[in-house]
Write a protein that binds this DNA or RNA. Structure first.
Lengths: 227, 227
DNA sequence: AACTTACCTGACCAAATGGTCAATTCTTGC
DNA sequence: GCAAGAATTGACCATTTGGTCAGGTAAGTT
């Protein structure tokens, strides 16, 4: 006989399938409406199940939300294992930016749930921000600083650089509609748009770190700028 | 006798004061909960007025929201007049970033209402995005391109550079709690934090444009990187 | 086949929500 | 000081919301 707890994730086949289905629907609805704005009825409709079914599996809206957010935090953390010690700065940074942009393209709803949570002051994930995330930032900033020490790259404000990489990569998920509108993409951003954005972010970051030669200017009438 | 339209902004003294008061409260509540999640009751409480009073001045929640959003769009647009033709690229960009960061620091709630709207797919402001904002971006990108043509700065992807300036500046308003948590600021970000962030963004942008000499590396054991 | 457990869901409920309204008080121009 | 419009608000209402529950069906185990 298998242990199937009521609220956790038991291992009943049907249960697993339905929980996944509900969480996918919930992620979408929470992303679009935030916790307070989302209704269990609309989540049920999105999942193609009667509302009572949602409560059967998750109990309350708050617990369902918690499950969705925890899932996303786990995704975030797993994507963070990237940057490691004595790699090459340029390729490591570029790889990390590419990984982050892939998440923005493939899991925009997850990013938006997270964004909603932050805009609201992160009542439910502050411990994560002050714990795992803070630790991660500090350890990665230390690596950047070490690279600077070793003369592998130009001095930078390492923490702000990390923050700004997140800002630039996540804006393409969170505010996609803004960039699509401004670029005139009626059907939303295409893969090519993400590629172009990725290149632009990599250029910006590598130039910030002095890791990318500046293309020569059109009219070479001025002195070189850089040391 | 003065013309006081019911829904617009008549010039009754009391009316003006109360409308301002309600909109301020509404901005805060909408920022924290989005349109659907905000309740007229909580807006009323925040404003220190009975709920019926809110309806007396604005009719419906939707009209109030519209008024708040329009106000913010106007603020946004006015902050956009900045970048003009044949200025000096470096100081113009730096000034613009400083202005945008000042908005993030002084009007974070406005930024968050806007962010909420974008996350939701911008149902109510798409015309603005596809109109005024698109035009603004195109005209300013043209100026950047002109500077490149004139050899005043290195070639850049001008539109993405603008997008990323927004992303970096607005993240300090929209996701303040995240950065405060990671930096260990228990009482929220301080002015010094914004100053440091502003410097970091300016450095990144100017280096991207080849407008800032790179500080020399610690160990000058390698060849200069830039052309 | 019998039995146990997981799964399903229509019908229901109390609370919250956006909005209305009529009665009352406050302002203001004359 | 007084009439006319502006402002105020408690009480009320229809609808929506999160959540419950009883009575059922399907699935697995022996």
């Amino acid at each position: 006989m298998q242990d199937i707890s009521t609220d956790g994730n038991g291992q009943g086949r049907i249960r697993q399938e339905n929980e996944k289905r509900i969480m996918k629907a919930a992620e979408k609805v929470f992303a679009q409406n935030g916790f307070r704005g989302a209704t269990t009825a609309s989540i049920a409709e999105e999942a193609g199940l009667p509302k009572a079914n949602i409560h059967y599996y998750f109990g309350t809206k708050a617990k369902l939300y918690r499950a969705v957010v925890d899932d996303i935090v786990a995704l975030w953390l797993s994507s963070f294992r990237e940057i490691t010690a004595n790699d090459d700065p340029a390729s490591t940074l570029a790889d990390y930016i590419r990984a982050k942009m892939d998440l923005s393209r493939t899991r925009p709803e997850a990013s938006r749930v997270f964004a909603n949570e932050l805009i609201r002051g992160a009542p439910r994930i502050k411990p994560y921000l002050e714990g795992d995330l803070k630790d991660w930032v500090e350890s990665k900033a230390a690596i950047l600083d070490m690279w600077v020490e070793q003369g592998k790259m130009a001095p930078v404000d390492s923490k702000r650089l990390i923050f700004h990489i997140w800002a630039m990569t996540q804006t393409w998920a969170d505010f996609e509609v803004q960039w699509a509108s401004v670029l005139g993409r009626q059907d939303g951003l295409q893969d090519a748009d993400f590629d172009k954005a990725t290149d632009a972010i990599i250029s910006t970051v590598l130039r910030t770190c002095g890791l990318l030669p500046l293309p020569s200017r059109r009219h070479a009438t001025e002195m070189p700028l850089t040391v």
